[in-house]
């Protein structure tokens, strides 16, 4: 009997020293109590979800690229042609020139500006800096080409042209059209305009009844 206990103890020590404690770090796929090879299809159905591999398609991926000349439904006008509102979706007037101002389909209010600030902070400030002076964190690492928003060329630039820069990129700057829906792009532009104003604004620009909030007379 004693031998049986000794043997058990030995097995316990052996198992323990092989399997170790919890909270180790490992690189092999996790073990499973009911492994997939023994019970195929029970845990992971043979269906495709986002960003998976599939031999069914020639390029081997489950996410299908958008067919040419289409836009994602969430980004475009639901149920209308993309060209239905050139101003809103392309920043252009009917004659093809850059539109100035903001599309009539949008209401510019505080909520819109807050949205613009949030999106700007996420997607633009790493390079353009929190105040739009081109001094974002990447500058420290050697990204030199980022311009400041506070020069005359960019102050005079039509809103539609900035919209195009966000949608399709420009020069060294890659497009952000895949990350920002058209409405969000306009919100970001509104916030960029606010940043530009903030650099050149004077006391006269602040409405009388709001001056006290800023400590102005």
């Amino acid at each position: 009997m004693r031998n049986a206990y000794i043997a058990t103890l030995f097995i316990v020590v052996l198992t323990f020293s092989i399997l170790g404690l919890r909270n180790r770090t490992f690189t092999k796929p996790p073990m499973d109590v009911f492994p997939e090879w023994l019970f195929p299809g029970m845990k992971y159905q043979p269906k495709l979800t986002q960003q998976q591999q599939s031999p069914f398609f020639a390029d081997g991926r489950s996410d299908r690229p958008a067919p040419p000349n289409t836009v994602p439904a969430s980004f475009g006008p639901a149920g209308q042609g993309v060209r239905s509102d050139d101003f809103l979706y392309r920043g252009k007037l009917h004659d093809g020139s850059w539109a100035r101002g903001f599309p009539p389909a949008l209401t510019l209010d505080m909520k819109f500006m807050e949205r613009g600030r949030e999106r700007f902070t996420i997607y633009c400030s790493p390079c353009h800096g929190a105040v739009g002076d081109g001094g974002g964190i990447t500058k420290k690492y050697g990204m030199g080409a980022v311009p400041t928003y506070h020069d005359d060329r960019l102050r005079q630039m039509a809103e539609g042209e900035i919209f195009n820069t966000i949608t399709n990129g420009k020069g060294q700057m890659n497009p952000y059209g895949d990350k920002l829906a058209p409405r969000d792009r306009w919100a970001v532009i509104a916030y960029v305009r606010a940043l530009q104003l903030a650099q050149t604004g004077t006391v006269a620009d602040v409405p009388e009844d709001h001056r006290a909030e800023l400590g102005l007379k």
Partner: peptide, 16 residues
């Protein structure tokens, strides 16, 4: 209890 639960099998998974 200790080894056959996700606390052991999954926590710490850091693939290459």
């Amino acid at each position: 209890q200790y080894y056959m639960t996700p606390k052991y099998t999954r926590v710490g998974y850091a693939p290459m």
